[in-house]
């Protein structure tokens, strides 16, 4: 009985791995794979000669990845601040409101930003009526604002949701520690800094390490939705580039080669992360 179900898993999760072989042929759609010319590592060599695009795309990917890394403590800080709200109902409401954006698609988020930031959007209406601008501004078609604007959008959508795991682990911190701290004369800020924060660090570290394998997966759907002729140069990350090569340009073999390189780098990062955890914690995650 498990066999037909596992066959489904095989068909959709394992068969694509065999698809890596496409990178070694000069594949043209419509011709059976093995009738195409075998080219060995030609497409992998092409990655290193396709400098203009590859450097730009890698730069974008790494910028987004490092911004993500730098901001990774945000959900934890958010949860600690939320924990300081004493009024229970308000706390619940904060959680409800800030988590909502996580459950709408990037298309809806795009539509909402379009509604507010586009040329005839709310922001321009307000700026116009205040006499602050004479020409409409439109951040959605501003190539230079891409990095920070997309980061802000990512935070808007994901912060509340990613904080929940920390909210859950705060509730498992021993309450007696807080009581002891009060007796020792610690204020709320000191308690948060010396009890809550250290209590959450293990969770943070584990999530950070688990995330390392996904370091280069910086969010295909988001950037695809916000990509247009004016933002393309800065928003095109590795995944989008692979998408453009393979699906838009039908340059399948090269697209697969770039994809393989990305996977290999991800696996190496994951292995390194695992070695580090083994050293630090004495047990590996995988």
């Amino acid at each position: 009985m498990a066999i037909p179900l596992m066959a489904l898993v095989f068909l959709f999760s394992y068969m694509p791995l065999f698809g890596w072989i496409y990178a070694f042929f000069d594949y043209k759609a419509g011709i059976p794979l093995f009738e195409n010319e075998f080219v060995g590592f030609k497409f992998f060599e092409l990655i290193f000669t396709d400098k203009a695009d590859m450097i730009r795309v890698m730069k974008n990917t790494l910028i987004f990845a490092f911004i993500g890394l730098a901001l990774s403590p945000l959900p934890m800080i958010f949860a600690i601040m939320m924990n300081e709200i004493r009024f229970k109902r308000f706390k619940m409401f904060v959680q409800t409101a800030t988590t909502l954006p996580n459950f709408v698609s990037w298309i809806i988020v795009f539509s909402l930003t379009f509604m507010i930031f586009s040329t005839e959007g709310l922001l321009n209406q307000i700026l116009f009526s205040l006499g602050l601008v004479s020409n409409p501004t439109n951040i959605l078609t501003n190539g230079e604002a891409v990095y920070w604007f997309q980061t802000v959008l990512g935070i808007w959508k994901g912060l509340g949701w990613s904080a929940i795991v920390y909210v859950a682990s705060i509730s498992s911190i021993d309450q007696e520690m807080y009581e002891a701290a009060v007796i020792d004369g610690a204020g709320r800020f000191k308690s948060a800094l010396h009890i809550t924060l250290p209590g959450l660090m293990p969770t943070y570290i584990v999530l950070l390490i688990l995330g390392i394998g996904n370091f280069l997966n910086v969010g295909l759907e988001q950037y695809l939705v916000y990509k247009n002729a004016l933002t393309a140069d800065n928003i095109e990350v590795l995944d989008l580039y692979v998408y453009r090569l393979g699906i838009s340009n039908h340059d399948y073999s090269y697209g697969v080669a770039v994809g393989i390189l990305k996977s290999v780098v991800s696996i190496i990062l994951l292995v390194i992360a695992n070695i580090i955890t083994k050293k630090v914690r004495g047990s590996s995650i995988f």
């Binding site: 068969m15 694509p16 496409y22 295909l220 692979v242 699906i247 399948y252 697969v256």
Partner: peptide
Amino acid sequence: LYRMLLVTMYVSGGLIPYYLVIKNY
């Protein structure tokens, strides 16, 4: 079989091979 299932959480063929597989099916 269980191991085989778990592996799918960490390894994927990538977008283009996935597309080609869907196309072939």
